[in-house]
Design a protein around this nucleic acid. Sequence first.
DNA 1: CTAGTTGCAAAGAGTTTGCATGGCG
DNA 2: CGCCATGCAAACTCTTTGCAACTAG
Lengths: 145, 145
Amino acid sequence: MSNAGGYKTKQREAVLRYMMEHRNSHVTVNQISDSFAERGMSVGVTTIYRHLEKLLEQGFVRKYTVDGAVGACFQYADDKQCREHFHLMCERCGCLIHLECSHLNELAEHIFSEHGFAVNPFRTVFYGKCKACLAEENKVGESNG
Amino acid sequence: MSNAGGYKTKQREAVLRYMMEHRNSHVTVNQISDSFAERGMSVGVTTIYRHLEKLLEQGFVRKYTVDGAVGACFQYADDKQCREHFHLMCERCGCLIHLECSHLNELAEHIFSEHGFAVNPFRTVFYGKCKACLAEENKVGESNG
DNA sequence: CTAGTTGCAAAGAGTTTGCATGGCG
DNA sequence: CGCCATGCAAACTCTTTGCAACTAG
């Protein structure tokens, strides 16, 4: 069942294992590939794509596009770990902040109960400006008026 | 102010006008380009991209990523009101919901005061599923287990 | 041995950039 | 005239496909 109609190869295991180890966050194909490369293990991106697609069909991973992100994001489909964890993206420096905050969870619940809309926290990104960039702009702003 | 630091060209006007005429739905760069081509008016995609980016920064359009669509989607941002409230985008049917809710404003304040991040409500879009689509999925889900 | 797997290379789509020309003001 | 806008071509990124070599069972 776990490898229905497929051979057990080290690449397949590596991809599945990587996804399980990173179940708390979503990852891109590049991240997976880079991680393998760092460990001296070379797995072609083609193979990663193919395994992810297979895992997707089998329901072991989810696929979605994150607002503003370059490519597709994948995450191991583990219900227990499916925490509501939002992202803040600075539109100035591009940094990404992972935010686990109960207020956010309450917000999602509010939107669902009051407005009938089920927010997908994985896909939703808050755009704005990070602390550092706000400070930078204040500095510049002073001389600018 | 409306065309801050820019010349008034027929391309700029064409893009803005197209966006305004299609304010009820989001459109892709390809759609815009094709529409111009059909009318015998050739505007390079580069130019369309550049204008949309500018309009995005100036707050005249919003940008979305929608599942199933090939590239990015853009939509004219109607009123001043649209800069003050948040938007919900259904990732299933693609409908856009304007949400004026004090909770959201409080949330932005919370994120600023507690996390030092200034949310840009205009650019931020909540992705998820709307009431109708949730109902649809529940119907399907019943027979599926 | 057979059938599925791998990964290079190339193709393909969406988007961005360089640069010379053209148009607004 | 000066500066911005335009758009072609090329570069770039993400993703898919063809194909020959390879490997699990």
